[in-house]
Design a protein around this nucleic acid. Sequence first.
DNA 1: CGTAAGTGACTAACTAGTCAGTTACTTCAC
DNA 2: GTGAAGTAACTGACTAGTTAGTCACTTACG
Lengths: 207, 207
Amino acid sequence: MARDSRITRAGILAAATEEFARHGIAGARVDRIAAAAGYNKNLIYVHFGGKDQLFDAVYEAAVREILEAAPFDAYDLPGYAAALLEFHIGHPHLMRLSRWNALERPGAVPQTVREAGEAKTAALARAQEEGRVDAALPADRLLALVVSLASTWTEGTPDAEPEGVAAAALAARRDAVATAVRRLTAPRADRGHPAGPRLAAGSHPRD
Amino acid sequence: MARDSRITRAGILAAATEEFARHGIAGARVDRIAAAAGYNKNLIYVHFGGKDQLFDAVYEAAVREILEAAPFDAYDLPGYAAALLEFHIGHPHLMRLSRWNALERPGAVPQTVREAGEAKTAALARAQEEGRVDAALPADRLLALVVSLASTWTEGTPDAEPEGVAAAALAARRDAVATAVRRLTAPRADRGHPAGPRLAAGSHPRD
DNA sequence: CGTAAGTGACTAACTAGTCAGTTACTTCAC
DNA sequence: GTGAAGTAACTGACTAGTTAGTCACTTACG
């Protein structure tokens, strides 16, 4: 029997990731996590403090994982979006955890995520200034749209399939996302100066 | 005291919508719904059958509402996306209900949603054949991307604000979405598509 | 007075969290 | 080496509070 607390922590974390991803915070059961990990329930309280703090740990680890797996590249946004989509399809847990967190804890964005977002925005703004990314939209808005495109067909959307998609379909979707991001972000030579505020023609869709 | 069962049903449904939108299925409390509606808990079981079936009723009603509020227009996709975003910002409940449903009941897409999606795809495919929408991507994939763009900054995403956004910020986001959708869907003359592509993008995103 | 609408009290099952006690591993005197 | 002592890891049993769902009964209305 393993008596190393690091191994125990890791085992509980793995079981908790599975449980939280599937059922969310309110739906997760501490007993189920302990049973799946093969440890006594009390260890969860000893090692993590409680259900909520266990979720914190799980989510934090998941965020760190995706930040490593899909590094941001302001000079290749289509590639970045494609990598993001591919990672989400291959690791559905992370997107589910993110969605649960957004729904069950409105406004509770982890520090890690916030910082990473700011760094991405800054890098994107730089790329826009250099003329390598279209500058019609400000960096923060553009980034949100790119990430949104990369989240198509992922868990938590109505278009997500319960089971894995065929490889061919996945490739087609990845290409679709890459195409969409390219059209959204490729610099447009004919458009002139990037500073001009030429948004949606300033019309009034609704009055 | 109202003794009309239709009024009772509506009252319970309204309270349940609020509760389910906020807490999801697992997190919702039947007692809370009954108390908020001002009726005895047992009426929920009499009128709806149980917690799960109550959620079904709530979600079905919400879906019908959004289908009415933001009718699909394959010839004005930027306007459609903008209207969708605006509706979601103004009525956050519906997006939250949709996300809860996707997370807590994987693969359980209501018939209404499925049918509406098929109709939209068909209409979009027609618009592509007519050359009024870019045809580089198949209709179903293109539609998913457009809806995804319209879901940026809505509930259930990390970018959603807990409280209402300022009117100016909302307008900027709506225009950003419209711009992105236009770039994604406007017919491109240089693409060498069989159907003669004509200028479809008018100066107004919505009529 | 018959019936549909509504109520209050109840329960069986569950659930997060606690706690006294046990087990295995390390340290160190001899 | 060896065994006593100390300690971190771990366990089983328990509790107090919740929760979905039920049921016998009452109320209002035509």
